[in-house]
Nucleic acid binder design. Structure first.
Lengths: 149, 149
DNA sequence: ATACATGCAAACGTTTTGCATATCC
DNA sequence: GGATATGCAAAACGTTTGCATGTAT
């Protein structure tokens, strides 16, 4: 993910966008975790590490990160969006624990093919798809619950 | 769908909920179409047919309809929710045209099974899943576009 | 009669925007 | 120095809630 951080600096440079401390801190936060953070969580995380940025800056920087391709925006129907480091990983699906909110990723080739075929069967040309499986993660099922994430 | 409307009246009766004209009009609107309406579209549709209801009433009635099981709430990540007549149809997936917003449904048994297996493979116990395939519907691909839906 | 629904307007949580000020290059 | 970012507060968006009033049974 150091590579990603460098890539972000390069992106900023290439687009004549100032590399401000806020931008770099936000990028560090999002690119340095495999969690799927909400904008609010990003802001909190910043404070934890001593940095900090106004809400507007957080949103605006997340937008830049998404444009750079280094971060992907996700909507799991929770009423807010989450942001995930792209890590050059191709498309994948998500499992969302309905108790603790933990997000797990997985990739399945069959699914990729199926969605294309299913779309065609209904006279659609597939652009992308999104699968979220809601359920209980192992920890929560076993009652060894934790607060969140 | 007349059956559904009757079922809603029965639901109201059984739960000692007054069958107000607003509730019946909203139920008629949602149960009488196979479209996936947003709350705002429901309100507009009401006006079109001479009826009308305040925003709060629309939302509150949609909630009752969902509780009755006659309507299902959907979130396709568009920033708002849509409401779909359940029609006794079991779970199904959705195709969403990214140009005109048209929603098409389909059912696939393999997918049902796959999601359960995929969840298990990741130590999750599946509760439900949501698959949305985004793409171009036939009409929009052929350029015979239409305004919305 | 009485419990419940309605409509309005205010509150909500998330995200966006306007603008004066501060910062990067 | 000049373009661009920041932070704040206000607005926007879909949705929810409080409350005075109206209505179904």
């Amino acid at each position: 993910m150091q590579a990603d951080k460098d890539a972000f600096r390069a992106f900023l440079r290439d687009h004549n966008l100032p590399a401000t401390p806020q931008r770099l801190a936000i990028a560090d936060t999002v690119l340095g975790t495999d969690r799927h953070l909400s904008a609010e969580e990003v802001a909190q995380e910043l404070k934890t590490r001593g940095a900090s940025a106004g809400t507007a800056t957080v949103y605006r920087t997340l937008e830049v990160l998404v444009r750079s391709g280094l971060v992907v925006e996700r909507d799991f129907g929770e009423g807010f969006k989450r942001y995930e480091a792209a890590r050059g990983v191709p498309h994948h699906e998500h499992l969302l624990c309905t108790v603790c909110g933990r997000v797990t990723e997985f990739r399945d080739e069959r699914l990729e093919r199926m969605t294309t075929l299913l779309a065609e069967a209904h006279d659609f040309s597939r652009q992308r798809h999104r699968l979220v499986i809601y359920g209980l993660c192992g920890e929560c099922r076993r009652g060894s619950g934790r607060a969140s994430r």
